[in-house]
Design a binder for these strands. Structure first.
Length: 218
DNA sequence: ATCCCGAGGG
DNA sequence: CCCTCTGGAT
């Protein structure tokens, strides 16, 4: 007889099937921010705050052509940089953070984006979410799990965490997810969040993991 | 808790 | 009009 897993099962038991079903649904899940190196990914991720990746990808080609390295960003004219990233929102904070972060990368890290959590967190505008993106995708050294707005929402709906603070949600996810899946987990939840488990009107009937979701609507 | 901030969708 | 988008600093 099959002990069918239900939405009422503990998160630690549901995470395996959830990962397997999402892997099957989104075999191409990956970082959606266009980039060619760690610095470009860092800048794109800072720009992605409260902004769609699609919009970030519209401004970064010209941005990366104009500013090819950390020194170029650090020495850029602030007003010109602000204009180039204006459409991503929060453009004053983002321009300031990019320039301060790049100045430190030049002065302290010899122009190379650091590859440890503590060093990344010392950069302006970089907290755990952005640091986890750079470590996981640019350096393939997942030190944590990316918890953005999609991961937060889906973790809560799926009952993988009852917390509200992203750092606490990250710890809950770490506790039930094999480390080798930490990078994929975020990409899978982000893809699913965008295509099915929308913030406004989730498409539960079309969801491949609805039978494992406490929040699923009939 | 509040501020930063544009763009797109409903 | 309102809500949301790969957040972070104060």
């Amino acid at each position: 007889m099959s002990a069918e897993l239900t939405a009422a099962a503990p998160a630690a038991e549901r995470i395996g099937p959830i990962l397997a079903l999402l892997h099957a649904a989104y075999p191409d899940a990956r970082c959606a921010l266009d980039h060619r190196n760690a610095l470009e990914l860092l800048v794109a991720t800072i720009l992605s705050a409260q902004c769609t990746d699609e919009r970030v990808n519209k401004v970064t080609p010209a941005l990366f052509a104009r500013y090819p390295d950390a020194r170029a960003f650090a020495e850029a004219d602030r007003a010109e940089l602000e204009e180039m990233i204006h459409s991503t929102g929060f453009y004053r904070n983002k321009a300031k953070n990019i320039q301060e972060a790049c100045a430190r990368i030049v002065e302290v890290y010899d122009g190379q984006v650091p590859a440890t959590m503590d060093d990344l967190l010392s950069l302006a505008g970089v907290a755990r979410k952005t640091a986890n993106v750079v470590l996981g995708t640019a350096y393939h050294m997942a030190d944590g799990i990316v918890v953005d707005t999609h991961v937060k929402r889906l973790a809560q709906r799926l009952g993988l965490s009852t917390q509200n603070d992203p750092d606490k949600i990250e710890r809950d996810l770490q506790a039930i997810t094999p480390r080798e899946e930490w990078i994929d987990l975020s990409h899978l939840l982000i893809f699913h969040g965008r295509r099915v488990c929308d913030a406004r009107k989730p498409n539960c009937p079309g969801c491949v993991i609805r039978h494992l979701c406490p929040a699923a609507q009939a």
